[in-house]
Design a protein around this nucleic acid. Structure first.
Lengths: 113, 113
DNA sequence: CTTGAGGTACGATACAAGTCGTACCTGAGG
DNA sequence: CCTCAGGTACGACTTGTATCGTACCTCAAG
C-alpha cells in the first residue's frame, strides 16, 4: 500500500484549510461538485468524470481529495471506486456541499427572483 | 499583468474558484474569519489583525482578498480601512461565512463538544 | 501464461504563490 | 520644512503544485 491512506479517519480530523486547498483546483472541485450533485451517492469510477488530464494527474488529484477527507477510494485491485464522504462533510462543514452544488446549476431551494 | 487589480463590483462576478483559492491560505482565512466573527461589521485596519508577516506580504494578501471580492479596502491616503463584503458574500455563497466562523471557535448552534 | 486496461510510483519540469528587501509615496505632527 | 509610520510597487528568492513520461503493478479475459 505504500502508506497510501493518510486520509483522515475521524470527522474531526478533517481540516478546513486542507479542504479549501483541495477545492481550489478546478478539476478537483468539478469532481466533488459532480459527486455532490448525485443524491444516490453511488460509487463512481475515475473514468466517469471525464477529466481532460492524464491518468497520473488524475491519480494525484484523487489522492489530494482523499487526503483532505472529501472522498473515499475503494481499491479493487485493478480498479477503484470513488465515493463522496457526504455524511462526514455535512457534519463537519454543514452547507459546504450545498455551496458547491449551487455552482453546478443544481436546483436552488430559493426562487431565483 | 492580469490587468486586474480591480475587485469584482457585481455579486455575480465573484467566482467560487477565486474565493476558495483566497481562503485556502491560512493568513487570509484568519482575516476573513475575524471579520466574519464581528457582527457589527466595523471597519478594521490592517494592523488590527496581528499577522505574523511583513507589511509587503500583508499588502499582497489583502489584495488577493479584495480581488476575490471578499473585502473592500477604503483608501485614506496613508491609512486604509478593511471591510468585509458580508452582504455580497451571503447572497452569492450563502452559508460560507458561517462555515468560516465555525472554525474560529465561534459558538455553534449545534456543536455539543 | 500472455495480454491489455486501469492505477500507481517516482522523477522531471514548468508555472504559480508566499515571502521578504529595497525604494518610494502619503498624510499627520512636530 | 522635516520626520515618521502606514502603505504600496517592483523584484528576487523559495516553496508548492499541477502536469506529464517512464516504468511497474493488478486483475480479468483470452
Amino acid at each position: 500500500m505504500t502508506g497510501t491512506d493518510a486520509a483522515p479517519a475521524d470527522v474531526d480530523d478533517i481540516e478546513l484549510g486542507t479542504v479549501l486547498r483541495a477545492l481550489s483546483d478546478d478539476h478537483r472541485r468539478a469532481v466533488v461538485v459532480e459527486l455532490a450533485a448525485d443524491d444516490s451517492d453511488g460509487e463512481r469510477t475515475c473514468n466517469s468524470f471525464d477529466l481532460p488530464i492524464s491518468k497520473q494527474t488524475q491519480t494525484h488529484h484523487f489522492r489530494i481529495l482523499r487526503e483532505a477527507g472529501l472522498i473515499r477510494e475503494i481499491n479493487y485491485g485493478n480498479r477503484k471506486g470513488i465515493r463522496l464522504r457526504r455524511a462526514d462533510i455535512d457534519r463537519r462543514f454543514p452547507g459546504l456541499l450545498d455551496l458547491l452544488a449551487a455552482e453546478s446549476g443544481a436546483p436552488s431551494p430559493e426562487a431565483p427572483r
